[in-house]
Design a protein around this nucleic acid. Structure first.
Lengths: 163, 163
DNA sequence: CATTCGTCATTGAATGTTCAAGCAGTCGTA
DNA sequence: TACGACTGCTTGAACATTCAATGACGAATG
């Protein structure tokens, strides 16, 4: 029996996919470089601080933080290890589950975030929002929400716009 | 003199940015995992093989390949080192510039690519194109082209849709 | 309560990426 | 030709990420 011919991408899809690959690579490099230079951390780490800063008491369970950030628990462990080393996050035992750990944003961490935020926002705006029409921003949001929901493990229940 | 207040993102931009971050993270993880599992290489490396396979004589100057792929020359050197180790790419001296190196796709490399392609396309399709309308695919393409052109170093002269 | 299974989080090794430094060759210019 | 500046590519070390294995605890079951 012959294996079925794969459904290749048509021309428009191909062009869109290549544009997406180029743009997402360029964008993440651009953002990472800006943050590394001005704040001494990669974008992933910056995002962790943002989530913590928006959470009640500036703390979150490791697993929750990993889910929100779309990263593995392992990666989060390493990352928090580094942030703890920097004095920006501290670990505390979870009061209700002795297996659990809370990641807590320190004052220094909050300060580092506050210092980094303006430059970061400016970079995002320059690279993305200043170049798109209001309509395109809507379209992009809709598209990305759809994609994220399709790939999210828990039916997307943990996605940011569902909070 | 007061530093000027940063122009924060408005609510719609904020939501779009978070959706973008979630989706791009999930998507690249998804694609990377699929390729790592089924083809033994990350997506970046797969893309290198694709570019080579589409190039005349299946070869490209290192710098050109780096520019097309939107990665640094350093990263490319390491990557090609690994691909060469796998027997998928070989290096040759450039005939016209003695500083230069050509990365050449081997038969084994072409075979590895051919074997990996169907599964990869299927993954991209499932994650992205099967979930978007034809109109959204156009919109996404337009948006991503705009972003890439804004961030490309050479005025975007090396972007895929400009070939 | 004892067993078993699942969850929370971490670890170390292997792999990939970045950054700054370095070597060799080319180009422009006097 | 000689010089200095620039380009092409590589290297090693520091850093980040993945993967599989592990220990500790919780929850369900008998």
């Amino acid at each position: 029996m012959a294996t079925t011919e794969p459904r290749w991408l048509d021309d428009g899809q191909q062009k869109t996919w290549r544009a997406y690959m180029a743009a997402s690579q360029l964008l993440s490099d651009h953002i990472d470089r800006q943050l590394q230079r001005d704040a001494g951390m990669p974008h992933t780490y910056y995002s962790l601080l943002v989530w913590l800063s928006e959470s009640p008491e500036r703390r979150m369970r490791m697993t929750d933080l990993a889910e929100r950030s779309k990263i593995t628990r392992s990666r989060l462990s390493h990352a928090v290890g580094r942030l703890e080393h920097n004095g920006w996050v501290r670990r505390e035992d979870c009061p209700t589950d002795r297996r659990g750990q809370m990641a807590v944003l320190t004052e220094e961490g909050f300060a580092a975030l506050a210092a980094a935020a303006p430059g970061h926002v400016e970079a995002v705006r320059c690279a993305l929002f200043d170049r798109l029409s209001a309509e395109q921003v809507c379209q992009l949001g809709e598209i990305m929400r759809t994609v994220a929901e399709g790939l999210a493990p828990h039916g997307g229940a943990d996605l940011p716009w569902r909070r």
